[in-house]
Nucleic acid binder design. Structure first.
Lengths: 214, 214
DNA sequence: ACTAGTTGACTGATCGATCAGTCAGTGCTA
DNA sequence: TAGCACTGACTGATCGATCAGTCAACTAGT
């Protein structure tokens, strides 16, 4: 059992990547407990044994999926965050977009992110541990930026705003057709950039509303 | 198999209620797939067979849990909503509180609600069907109220605001200790009423920000 | 008032299916 | 021939569900 090895390098056409992407879909659709190693292997087009050969256990495979996706998202988030001039007028808007866009964009793998959200909200212990390890460091950076962009608000307020913003993101990340249902007949929901713009408007508006009364 | 029968009446010390409350806890902690009928029966202090005797299947039992809890929450929400004068200045604040407070309060059974959120965000088909049946009608009423309270905004905007508000609620409903972690050392998170107040401030601020630019 | 018949709540045993995980062995490459 | 990727056959455990059957409570007939 070579454990995980082969992190992301290699020019190979190995089965590792097939497994990882199949696992991401499977876990996203069924959740950790709902997903089965047999079905997962079938989707990846490899034997079930190979999953254990490469990753050792179901838990490890799940962790590998989260690790891989979080690395992509965090990289893009921090890259966008670094380009922001926090003294600018609309710094807060840029911060929110840096937080939100990577999760919704092509590199985002919204499905895996949705899974993490689901696990968190449900209070699942496994996902909590993964979030702490893979997402907390980046979250800290964003909270510090929010402190400044909002005019030097308290850290408690900034953390609260960050939490709220994630909640709004979570509400958008699952495209389940409910919003269309609730809007009724002829209306169409916002798409992509327009949705991100409105989301940002909402979060920044809410944040400023909180900030100015504290 | 008497199916569900005994909806809520009866002065009995029957096992039905023990099963339902045990199921609510079990499903909340482990999710639908993670929860086991054996463990659930053990927690309720009855035989595993009795679960099938009363509810027929695991799916039906899950549905019964959601139905019971959603009835309580919807009742309280609609009751609070009916008391609001939509022409008042702070009608929007009252609407948000009417939406949020029942889910966080004692009658709310925040755990079960968190589960529903989790399923929705994860895109689970089963939970989507339940939400459509048990939560959509109340949601429609709230969206109509938001339309008016925000000064006659478009229905699309009102629905979007409702969705955002639910997301913020979801971010708060799971007390998993992350917010404390992100705040750092000495700080303490908001509790109960103060939290609801800040949540409301955020949502209404965000909603107004969206409304006035459309 | 006693009993036979009926019902409903509930249980222990057990079902086939499926679960994650193991292992000996095969083929390919260096 | 040594090492690596990979597979098929397999295991014990656990899953949700079904079964026949027990037991107390209630009703009806005499």
């Amino acid at each position: 059992m070579p454990a995980v090895k082969n992190q992301s390098t290699s020019p190979n056409g190995l089965a590792l990547e097939k497994i990882l992407s199949a696992a991401e879909v499977e876990f996203s659709e069924k959740g950790f407990d709902g997903a089965g190693m047999k079905a997962l292997a079938l989707r990846a087009g490899v034997s079930q044994s190979l999953l254990h050969y490469h990753f050792g256990s179901k838990d490890k495979l799940y962790e590998a999926v989260i690790r891989e996706r979080s690395a992509l998202i965090n990289e893009e988030r921090l890259s966008l965050l670094a380009q922001i001039d926090l003294s600018e007028e609309n710094a807060a808007d840029q911060i929110v977009q840096a937080l939100v866009a990577p999760a919704l964009g092509p590199a985002g793998g919204g499905r895996a992110y949705a899974r993490i959200f689901a696990g968190l909200i449900a209070g699942n212990a496994r996902d909590q541990a993964l979030v702490k390890e893979f997402y907390d460091p980046t979250a800290q950076k964003f909270i510090e930026a929010i402190e400044i962009a909002l005019g030097g608000v308290d850290r408690v307020v900034a953390a609260q705003v960050y939490q709220f913003a994630l909640g709004v993101l979570a509400s958008v990340i699952s495209r389940d057709g409910r919003i269309e249902r609730l809007m009724g007949d002829a209306s169409e929901p916002l798409k992509d950039n327009a949705l991100i713009a409105q989301l940002t408007q909402f979060v920044v508006g809410g944040a400023r509303s909180i900030a100015q009364q504290n």
